[in-house]
Design a protein around this nucleic acid. Structure first.
Length: 431
RNA sequence: GGAGGCGUGCCGGAGUGGUUGAACGGGCCGGUCUUGAAAACCGGAAUACCUGCAAAGGUAUCGUAGGUUCGAAUCCUACCGCCUCCGCCA
């Protein structure tokens, strides 16, 4: 959620930024609704003050005048109730609009309508040349009996898969590899230095978070906002939702807490199973495991001081890139444009991995990673602050994929396939 | 799933309808004393919102949301969470 006070100070900047995101809410109208709301707050506060005063008088009054005073107070209460009702309606209208507003993009985020306007920042890594037409990962994996979606469909429906055998071993190797890097301060320090950043090098704390989340908390994370609800699995009997990323339960870890300034940044590397309904993607990637209802992912999350959040965000990107380079997977970095960003983000980078077997063997880039700076947008609803002992302020939250298991396995299979239809995975995973 | 208990400020802990933002103790911050510290003594300290240039004033907050009442930390209801016992169980 945005801060109405900041919107009031710079209405034009907000209007422009939100317009670039394709948000149609009119700022002047919002401010007018807020004005009306404030008038009602003043009215209700005055009436409550009068009520408090009369209650004190009743308590002090002697028996003879008490009854008359109570009668006056009762009348006062009637008018208070009607004003309170009016305030409640005005507040609901105001909040409904505020919840619709996405985060304000930074001024240097590329402006654009949709995916087509995203800006490719760089291509990294050597694309392997094949002496034959490289195969699709699904063909290879099916031949080696590493992925079975037919039986999964029988058991669980479309967009599910069984991962088997050496592919499972590869997933756990990938997990070990990643955790060993993100918990290693010396390694992180090298990443920071190479990226010319000045954030501290403290290690990520590995976390296995809950895979289910309460409705109120999910809402506070901004992940049930209009348009997103359809993407979530809901368990009505218990009123719980299945998470779509470890981000969803890592973010609220410090719900309603104030951290000490010297604690920051707090860095988590969470591993979770993620559930997505993939509503509205019918007919897209129906084969294989590129787009499934359930997949595992290692997700980075950081609570940062506001003045360092942009560096922390670039640090996340640098980690993603370094990990990809260690696996020798070619990729490109994309600066996501205003129209294509996730609603809670002020800035977003994606990494798209090179998949040589896609597109009938000519290859294509597919999104495998994403990293976002949500500034104080999530922290405001989560009420997560930090304090230096004198002042307290909302923290900034940063999230980013370390590795999404399924799609990374896809990239590994396609890039490390052999002519005979086997796999020669990188040594770094072979331990 | 059954039975019972409990949720007060940074912490402990009073408070069962009337100036209670909340006794008391500890911790914390500032000061006096001291060569310095400790002890002792004195003083200070919550958050959010509204009005205001400010000083200041007002409102709300005793798990959360409603309700009863002129008045609620105190009474009622629901929800959330924690604890104990029984049952079931990876």
């Amino acid at each position: 959620m945005l801060d109405i006070k900041k919107i009031r100070l710079e209405p034009d900047r907000y209007a422009d930024g939100l317009k670039n995101r394709g948000c149609t809410v009119a700022i002047p109208k919002l401010l007018k609704i807020d004005d009306e709301r404030k008038l009602l707050i003043a009215k209700v506060d005055d009436l409550r003050a009068a009520m408090n005063k009369s209650a004190r008088e009743i308590s002090a009054a002697n028996a003879s005048e008490k009854q008359a005073k109570i009668l006056t107070a009762q009348k006062l209460k009637e008018s208070l109730k009607s004003s309170e009702k009016a305030l409640e309606l005005a507040s609901e209208e105001f909040t409904a609009i505020m919840y619709k507003l996405p985060n304000l993009p930074f001024g240097d985020v590329p402006v654009g309508k949709n995916e087509a306007d995203n800006k490719v920042l760089r291509n990294v890594g050597q694309k392997k040349t094949f002496s034959y037409k490289p195969k699709d990962y699904f063909e290879i994996a099916t031949n080696l009996d590493l992925i079975d979606t037919d039986r999964a469909a029988r058991v669980s429906g479309t967009r599910f898969g069984y991962l088997k055998g050496q592919l499972v071993m590869a997933q756990f190797a990938l997990i070990q590899f990643t955790l060993s890097r993100l918990t290693n301060e010396a390694w992180l320090s090298k990443v920071i230095k190479k990226a010319k950043l000045s954030v501290p090098s403290q290690a990520f704390v590995p976390v296995l978070p809950p895979d289910m989340i309460r409705m109120e908390v999910f809402r506070a994370m901004g992940k049930l906002d209009p348009g997103q609800e359809e993407e979530r699995y809901h368990l009505p009997k218990d009123n719980l939702y299945l998470i779509g990323s470890a981000e969803h339960t890592l973010g609220p870890y410090f719900l309603n807490e104030t951290l000490k300034a010297e604690q920051l940044p707090v860095r988590f590397i969470g591993y979770s199973t993620n559930f997505r309904r993939e509503a509205g993607s019918y007919g897209k990637d129906t084969k294989g495991i590129l787009r499934v209802h359930q997949f595992d992912k290692l997700e980075m999350f950081s609570f940062s001081r506001p003045d360092l959040s942009r560096e922390e965000h670039r640090f996340f990107l640098a980690i993603q890139e370094t990990l990809m380079q260690e696996l020798k997977l070619p990729y490109r970095v994309v600066h996501v444009c205003t129209g294509d960003m996730v609603s809670t983000d002020a800035e977003q980078f994606d990494i798209e991995s090179w998949l040589p077997g896609q597109n009938n063997g000519t290859g294509e880039y597919r999104e495998t990673h994403s990293t976002s700076n949500s500034t104080d947008f999530q922290a405001r609803r989560l009420n997560t602050k930090y304090s230096d002992g004198k002042h307290s302020e909302l923290v900034h939250t940063i999230n980013g994929t370390a590795f999404a298991m399924g799609r990374t396995l896809v990239a590994l299979i396609e890039n490390y396939q052999t002519e005979k239809g086997g796999l020669a995975l990188p040594k770094i995973l072979m331990k």
